[in-house]
Structure formats: structure tokens, C-alpha cells
Amino acid sequence: MPSKLKVKKSLLTTYYQFIEIIKEEKVFLTVIGICFFAAGYGYQYANIAMWFGFMFAAYSAVANDSIQTIGTFLSSNSDKKWYTLWLYIGGIFLVTVTYSWITHSGDVSYQRLSTDALSQAPTSFTFLQIAAPIFLLIITRMRMPVSTTFLILSCFSADLAGIVDMLGKSMIGYVTAFVIGIIVWSLVSRWISSHFVGEAKPYWRVLQWITSGCLWSVWVMQDIANVAVYLPRSLNTYQFLGFASFIFAGLGVIFYLRGDKIQEIVTEKSHTTDVRSATIIDFIYAILLFFFKELSHIPMSTTWVFIGLLAGRELAMSLMDQDGFGKPFKKSFKLIRRDILYAAIGLLISVILAISINPDINTEIMQLIGLE
């Protein structure tokens, strides 16, 4: 009898928690419902669908990936007005995409979409292709740093080889960033713990704004393909103006919300709110992204590179620091394991979406595992 009462009490507790979540997120859930309705209506009409897909992808991709590029910038500049930060980052975005649009004959993706698997702009859409960014919005709300590259571009890949190429480059990116994170912070963590105390000198703020701007620009070169994949591969003037102005406005919303819930991925890491630590993270991350951008035109998950860098950093600080500057090893390992799990969940969702959308990919996978 007592056990039945415990079960009932547990069910009631779960029920009330669910109701509280619904109340707390009612505005967000309403917006998500409207987005799904729009996707269900618009996917049948290609000219409408490509702009619906673009708008959903533009906000969701930048919102999810904001932790990588402007996350440390936001956390270490919490004392600044949101619109000052927005105009700075938004201005860099406009310059970056305009340069690609001019130099690559209307292509805003820095030729990330020139690979065989993605070179053809879609002429028709499925519901899941338009809805994929909406799922990304939900995942972002749950504070999961998943790869927008896999979640969105996999839906448009012409074959399995395109997804495998993206996966291979992303895994190399994670391992490279992880190793570099360990090496760099193993060398400097003790020096940082003894020197990064008190108020930072004014020049650190200048350095951080410069490195954050460079990082943001390189990220746009890498990941804007996740948004542009819905649109023609060469945009005319009006299409480009619509593309650039919508993302610029979306950045304003993200800065107004201060990164929203996904920002906690950054703030929970050791000393990322310190402008000096944030500058070092951004500088190394920018170099890594630029290296992989120059390596090949194959799109990759910048999220994996970012969590690899933070994982290596956290691990090195835990192992090398004896003064409490880093987190305990077990806590650091738990954060690393959780971020990897979330990235793996995102990859699994991406593959499921790709299989559901493209029957050719489904056939290739079945043949690969010997079921066909």
C-alpha cells in the first residue's frame, strides 16, 4: 500500500512539474506551434518554402551556435548595452557576407556549398527539410550544443558520401581542438591562475573585441552555408538584401536575450566570464576555424571543434592547477561527457532526418549494413 502511494505521489509531482514547464514556456511553445503550422503549409510551394526554411534556419542556427562565437563575448561583456554589442557583431556579419557575395558571384557561403553533395539548390522541399531548423530551436531551448551542420545540411545531402565527408572532417576537428586545448592550457593554466587576478587591464577589453570580431567573421565563413542551403546558390540583389537584413535583425534578438538559455553552456565553464580567458579561447578557436576553412570546402561542425577546445581546456585546468582555478576532475569529466552526449544525439537526429527525407541515403545505409 505505501508503495502505491509513493507511485501516485511521484506521478503527481511529475504532472505538476510538466504543468509548470508548460506555463513557463507557453510563449515559446506557441511560437514553435506557429512555425510548424507554417512549415506544413509552405513546404508544398518552393518559392515560399525556401524563405520559410531560410528564416527558421537563420535564427535557429545562429541562436544555437552563438555559444561558440559570441558566447564568451556576451559573458565577458555583460556590463555593456546589448545594442552596442549587436551593432558591432552585426556590422562584421554584413561586411563578411557582402564580401563573399561580391567575390563569389552571388554565393554568400564562401563556396561551402560547392561540394558535389550540396552544389544544386533545391527546387522542391519536404516538410522535414523545412521543419529541421524548428527541431533545432527546441534542442537549443534545452541547452544542447548540437551541430547545426549535421542537422540541417544532412537534410539536403545528395548522397551518404556527403554526410560521411562532413562527419570525418568534424571528428578530426574535435580531436585536433581537444589536443590543442590540453597542450595550451597545460602550459599556461598555472601562469593564468597566478596572473589573471583582480581587474583586467583596459587593453584586454580591446584585444577581446578584436579576437571576437575575427572569430565571428571566420565562423560566418564556415557556417553560413547552414542557412544559405535553402536559397539559390547565386543570390540576386533583392534576395541578398532579404538574406542579410533578416539575419542582422535576428542577431539583435539574440543579443537582447543575452544568448538565452544556451548561453549557460559557456558560463558554467571555468572563468569564461573573465575577459582575459575569453580572449584566449576566442583567439585559439578562430585560428582552428580558419585552418579548417582553408583545408577544404567540405562543411564541418564548428560545434564539435568548440566543445573539443573547451573539453581540452577544462581537462588541462583540472589536471595542472593546484590552486582551485579549474573545476575538480570528476566535475570537468562530467561536463565533457555531457557535451559529447548532446553532440552525439544531434548527429543521430540528423541521420534519422536524412534517411527520412532522402530514400537514396536510406538505401545506401541498408546496403552498407547488409540489410539490402
Rank of each mutant, 00 (worst) to 15 (best):
L5R: 12
T13N: 13
F18K: 06
F18R: 07
I19R: 11
E20P: 00
I21E: 01
I22Y: 03
F28G: 02
L29I: 14
I32Q: 00
F36L: 09
F36E: 00
Q44F: 08
Y45R: 04
I48H: 02
F52A: 09
F52M: 14
A57L: 03
S60I: 04
V62E: 09
I67V: 15
G71A: 09
T72Y: 10
T72S: 14
F73R: 04
D79H: 15
W82I: 12
Y83D: 13
L87R: 04
L87V: 12
L94P: 07
V95Y: 08
T96C: 14
T98I: 10
Y99R: 08
S100E: 12
H104P: 05
V108L: 12
R112C: 14
D116E: 15
L118F: 11
A121Q: 05
T123V: 05
T123L: 03
L128I: 00
I130Q: 01
I134P: 07
R141Y: 13
R141L: 06
R143F: 11
V146K: 11
T148E: 14
S157C: 09
A158I: 01
M166S: 13
L167C: 13
I172W: 11
I172V: 15
G173N: 09
Y174H: 04
V175A: 14
V175K: 04
G181Y: 05
V184I: 15
R190N: 15
S193F: 12
G198F: 06
G198P: 07
R205V: 10
R205Q: 10
W209C: 04
S212R: 06
C214S: 10
V220D: 09
M221H: 03
N226M: 04
Y230E: 01
S234T: 10
T237I: 06
G242N: 09
F243H: 14
F243G: 13
S245N: 04
F246I: 05
I247F: 13
A249K: 01
R258Y: 11
I262D: 02
E264W: 03
S277C: 13
D282C: 14
I284D: 06
Y285R: 12
F291V: 15
F291H: 00
F292H: 10
S296M: 07
T302W: 00
T302N: 01
F306D: 00
G308E: 04
L309S: 05
R313D: 04
M317C: 15
M320Q: 11
G324I: 02
G326C: 09
L335Q: 10
I336F: 01
I336S: 07
I340E: 00
L341P: 01
Y342V: 02
I345C: 05
L347A: 10
L347F: 15
S350E: 01
E364A: 12
Q367G: 15
G370C: 07
E372K: 15
E372F: 13
